[in-house]
């Protein structure tokens, strides 16, 4: 990740970014309600994915239970609004904080573990959260989930909900970018590359890993909360291992070594799921083949591949320059 490699960065990225923002802003005016709904849901999930990539791509850790935080945020919102009749805006703020609280506890025990053992321990915690949601029937309704989440009138229309989500997602993109670019973010990346070297310069590795873990859990919780807002319902599968695995694959598919890679991954998966799902009940295998091709031929993900080819051509250019 050559964030400061200005000579390599695509000078035209500002153009792309502006174009995308424009597209996002005018979409609700031109596309059907179905697509508005889908784009809104995609944006909510992007919050989850971008937040998770803080630990995966930038932190070099692979916790495997983040869906627990995603689902916890979603269920907190649902229960707060329906059972406690909390004001919407209060619930919106408290739900991700609840996930953050869970993550502080889980992370404290987990981040000290290496790679695979971190994955297994967080998977176990994630499954614990999922099973509690599933089985605490009196509170959560179990398999039936909770439906009919009330929203304030101002965001009840698809268009308004879209822009509301866009604002929140945009805010998250900004905040996550600032975190990655901050001294903390840079140290986190250096820790990923060579933990021992960073330890020698005086860094308490576990402390920093915990902070990254908790931050990513906040965004997971916020993503889940927004998903609940968008779909107005919650089900236990929001917290299960499949969701945890899905976010990992999403980041990898788009390119976990790039900032916007996860967004690309989310978009691709959503579109495939939706479009393929219209034609056949058997679409999972297509995704499966995609994953296999990804691992064998495109391990850097889509954005990663683009970035790597740019770096490669930069080198070729330098080499031909030095020859002349």
């Amino acid at each position: 990740m050559i964030q400061a490699a200005q000579s390599i960065r695509n000078k035209g990225w500002l153009l792309w970014a502006s174009g995308l923002v424009l597209l996002l802003v005018i979409s609700p005016l031109v596309v059907s309600e179905f697509w508005i709904y889908m784009l809104t849901d995609i944006m909510a999930y992007c919050i989850f994915a971008l937040g998770y990539n803080i630990v995966l791509g930038y932190g070099g850790m692979m916790p495997f239970g983040h869906a627990g935080f995603y689902g916890a945020g979603a269920y907190f919102l649902a229960l707060a609004l329906i059972m406690v009749r909390m004001p919407f805006w209060a619930a919106l703020v408290l739900a991700p904080l609840f996930s953050t609280f869970l993550a502080a506890i889980i992370g404290f025990f987990s981040v000290r573990r290496r790679a695979f053992y971190l994955a297994i321990l967080t998977l176990a915690f994630g499954q614990l959260i999922w099973s509690v949601i599933l089985k605490w029937y009196s509170l959560t309704g179990g398999e039936n989930g909770i439906t009919g989440i009330p929203l304030p009138d101002v965001i009840s229309t698809p268009g308004n909900l879209y822009f509301f989500t866009l604002a929140i997602a945009g805010g998250c993109v900004y905040v996550i970018y600032k975190i990655i670019d901050s001294p903390f973010g840079r140290v986190l990346q250096a820790m990923r590359e060579n933990p021992q070297r960073m330890e020698f310069t005086g860094v308490n590795l576990d402390q920093h890993r915990l902070i990254a873990f908790v931050i990513s859990a906040f965004f997971a919780g916020l993503g889940g909360t927004m998903h609940a807002v968008v779909t107005r319902c919650v089900f236990p599968d929001l917290a299960d291992w499949a969701k945890s695995g899905e976010v990992v694959i999403t980041c990898m598919l788009g390119g976990m070594n790039t900032f916007f890679g996860p967004v690309i991954g989310v978009a691709v998966l959503f579109f495939m799921h939706t479009i393929l799902g219209r034609f056949t009940a058997y679409w999972a295998w297509i995704l499966g083949v995609l994953f296999i091709l990804l691992v064998l031929f495109l391990p850097d993900g889509i954005m990663g591949y683009i970035q790597q080819s740019r770096i490669a051509s930069w080198f070729q250019q330098r080499e031909s320059e030095s020859r002349t």
Partner: peptide, 8 residues
């Protein structure tokens, strides 16, 4: 990811 693909 490879194994996930095979599971699907």
């Amino acid at each position: 990811v490879l194994a996930f693909g095979l599971v699907y």
